[in-house]
Design a protein around this nucleic acid. Structure first.
Lengths: 244, 244
DNA sequence: CGTTATTTGTGCGTATGTATT
DNA sequence: AAATACATACGCACAAATAAC
């Protein structure tokens, strides 16, 4: 009956996710059992199990046969795995971006140098990123003029407050194919601006990820500096010993 | 090789994983369909779907309704030159390790769970790591009993204050060859103990890296939790779009 | 000590929907 | 239009782990 494009299990998963994030099961109490949820939502037990799968993959809960389902005591959050450039672009799949400072031309010697530009003129845009309606990341993007100028026509980038489900690097990739990226990861204390945007206290540790993207001619086409809230985000990588 | 304790879907998943890593589906060819695998393995289509779930979660394949199942061409393995298991082992080349708490048997439910152990008994050792005589990292290592017990004979691990130029994972690798590792990175505030060991103020942001190493049978053989001083250490990775 | 009830895990069969070819 | 292939959803049965008695 419901015009919901979301399948049943996704609705159940979202409902449970909200309750968990609200702290309804904080004291080690178990979540409702499969049988209970199946009754209250009026679906089969298999559908409830399908909903729990998502929560387990997100490391939001763990399940023990014979006992029940429990929220993880260690901070869960949004986990993404970035092992390749495509993984970075796939970020748009389940997150939305909201413009804080629209795309404009600015003078920034540091950013220009990291982009390998002789001039100090770069195009910059600043935005936050959400998953499940909560902000987990604030990002500043710097682009060389030849990449940034054509993007000035995109209302998603030039309108303050605009929300859209895409990645800057996805747009850049249509102009200049990305071949590789250099990435460095460190920890730092949240400053005044970042703390306000992420909704945390000044001085809170945040994860800082700097990425420089290069096209096939090995010219830098984007510098992205992101600050992540650690309790809402974990950076995950799989490492292999050898290639197939 | 396959143990009868493993469920059917795990056997199918392992079989597919081996074929994928061997490169059987490299040229964009689709994997066998659910119906085909269900016939060849003599199981229901649901069981095949359950096997594919694991591969999708591991981002080894992606599935397209109406088309089929395909291996991701940008697997983590492609970044091996820059962020691989061997890189982690090479850490010993220019750093030294100093034992803070020697290798002992402890009860730790959390560590045991992450190692996939049914029992809570694990072997644990805690140490700092130096580069150029200054500490940049404090690490806690947890090992399953069958790996940890044989290491109790190593004086470098059981003597408080002992300094030596090696990595735990290097030792573990001689007992059980490491095939892959899962790594998650986040930021946190230094607690009392970590702050003292790293020589920083309590509350300072530190980079926390959790790694779980797996052998060729996909059994966890080591959990290492490291805290890095951001001003002395930055984590760098190069990401590639495709193979060079 | 075993017994029993509860809860999750595995596996099967079926039906229907949706996207692709 | 038809066939193919994955997605969702229901039903059922039994196994295994846990906890309470």
């Amino acid at each position: 009956m419901s015009r919901d494009r979301d399948p049943e299990y996704a609705i159940i998963a979202r409902s449970l996710r909200e309750q968990i994030l609200r702290g309804d099961f904080e004291d080690g109490r178990a979540l409702p059992t499969e049988a209970e949820l199946s009754a209250t939502f009026g679906v089969s037990r298999q559908t409830v199990r399908r909903a729990f799968q998502d929560l387990v993959v997100d490391r939001l809960v763990y399940r023990v046969p014979g006992r029940g389902t429990f929220v993880r005591h260690d901070k869960p959050g949004y986990v993404r795995q970035f092992g390749s450039v495509s993984d970075l672009m796939a970020l748009a799949e389940d997150t939305t971006l909201q413009i804080i400072e629209p795309l404009t031309r600015v003078l920034d010697a540091g950013a220009a140098e990291r982009l390998g530009l002789s001039d100090h003129s770069v195009y910059s845009v600043h935005f936050t990123r959400r998953h499940d309606e909560s902000v987990f990341c604030a990002t500043s993007v710097y682009l060389p003029p030849d990449i940034g100028l054509p993007l000035m026509g995109e209302p998603e980038l030039t309108t303050v407050g605009a929300r859209s489900p895409f990645t800057i690097i996805g747009r850049v990739d249509t102009h200049a194919a990305i071949a590789r990226a250099e990435q460095s990861i460190t920890a730092e204390a949240a400053g005044l601006i970042i703390a306000r945007e992420l909704g945390c206290v000044v001085g809170t540790p945040v994860l800082r990820v700097d990425r420089v993207y290069f096209d096939s001619s090995d010219h830098a086409v984007e510098l992205a500096i992101s600050r992540f809230l650690p309790e809402r985000y974990t950076y995950r990588i799989n490492l292999m010993r050898s290639t197939p």
